[in-house]
């Protein structure tokens, strides 16, 4: 992206709440959360070659931890947020240790099974999670005394967090560690032969990805002020994975575009008819068969061809 385009993008994002209505401001906040979440999954899928079907675990765990601490122990947000992040990251460490005993399809199946275990527990462990009713009565934090209850305030808050998070993840990808990660994806044997600890590179990425997933989880629960087991469901993991793949795994812009498309599609479809799951499935099939590289690499190839002629 050229410098001019970046400046225009930033101006548009900053000015948007001044022009758009509340509905669109809220939609944009949700897109930021989805984009952050998809970017964290992209670290594994796109750069590590590790396709996880259990990424919803991090949004759910962070949201439930924060909500439970707030409701049951009465802790304030500035304590619940770091505790939720620490708790989720620790569990990501454990899950990563288990799931990375395998790669490829085995990794996918184990992450799926682990997140389904959490999903089932969220439904059944009613003493903690309030079961199918979910946890409600939550509030948004007020950092530095600024209330986030208005749509515009929350918009700027989630925009800031998302930009910082994406920047931090892009830094990891472009660092020597990121190069080692991509190496472990493409040529894991050679990387081992060169003296890299491939397992450790993958595990650290898994934990880092889980951490940013947890950040997305906090934004998620602050936005909705409510958390339900469906946040942990396979559908939820599938939505974010679809965003990554549809947009273009292994690019920074791809998952952001993909997550935005999936979220907008879901919002509009849910408003008119109750068939989101069927559409989600159909989009999956179509994308995998006809556009396996994703939208952003597709557009890049297309514009490169235009420039040549």
């Amino acid at each position: 992206m050229s410098a001019a385009a970046r400046i225009v993008l930033v101006l548009v994002l900053v000015a948007f709440p001044l022009i758009g209505g509340d509905f669109y401001i809220n939609l944009a906040s949700q897109i930021f959360i989805a984009a952050l979440f998809a970017t964290s999954l992209n670290l594994l899928v796109g750069y590590g070659g590790l396709v996880s079907l259990g990424h919803a675990a991090w949004i759910g765990l962070a949201a439930y931890t924060s909500a439970w601490l707030y409701l049951h122990l009465g802790l304030r947000h500035w304590i619940t947020a770091p505790l939720a992040l620490v708790n989720t990251t620790l569990i990501a460490g454990l899950f990563g240790w288990i799931a990375l005993r395998a790669t490829g399809l085995g990794f996918l199946m184990i992450t799926l099974a682990l997140s389904q275990v959490l999903w089932g527990t969220a439904y059944r462990w009613a003493a903690v999670t309030n079961g199918d009713n979910g946890l409600s009565g939550l509030t948004r934090p007020a950092p530095f005394g600024i209330s986030l209850d208005g749509p515009a305030a929350f918009y700027y808050f989630s925009l800031t967090v998302t930009i910082v998070a994406v920047w931090m993840m892009a830094r990891l990808v472009n660092s020597p560690f990121g190069a080692a990660l991509r190496g472990s994806r493409d040529e894991s044997r050679r990387m081992s032969a060169l003296g890299h600890n491939v397992w450790l590179v993958r595990w650290l990425t898994f934990v880092y990805s889980g951490f940013w997933g947890a950040v997305a989880g906090l934004l998620f629960v602050y936005y909705h002020k409510y958390i339900h087991p469906t946040a942990l469901s396979l559908t939820s993991s599938a939505e974010v994975l679809l965003g990554v793949i549809a947009g273009g795994a292994g690019t920074i812009a791809g998952p952001i575009v993909g997550a935005a498309i999936v979220l907008i599609l879901k919002n509009y479809v849910s408003a008119y008819l109750d068939r989101w799951n069927m559409l989600l499935g159909a989009v999956f099939v179509v994308i995998v068969i006809f556009m396996p590289d994703g939208i952003v690499p597709g557009i890049r190839r297309w514009s490169a061809r235009l420039r040549k002629t």
Binding site: V51, L53, L105, L108, T235, A238, L241, I245, N277, M278, L280, G281, A282, V283, F284, V285, V288, I289
Partner: peptide, 10 residues
Amino acid sequence: VLVTLGVSFI
């Protein structure tokens, strides 16, 4: 695997 996931939703 992604296609089978999509079909399962359908």
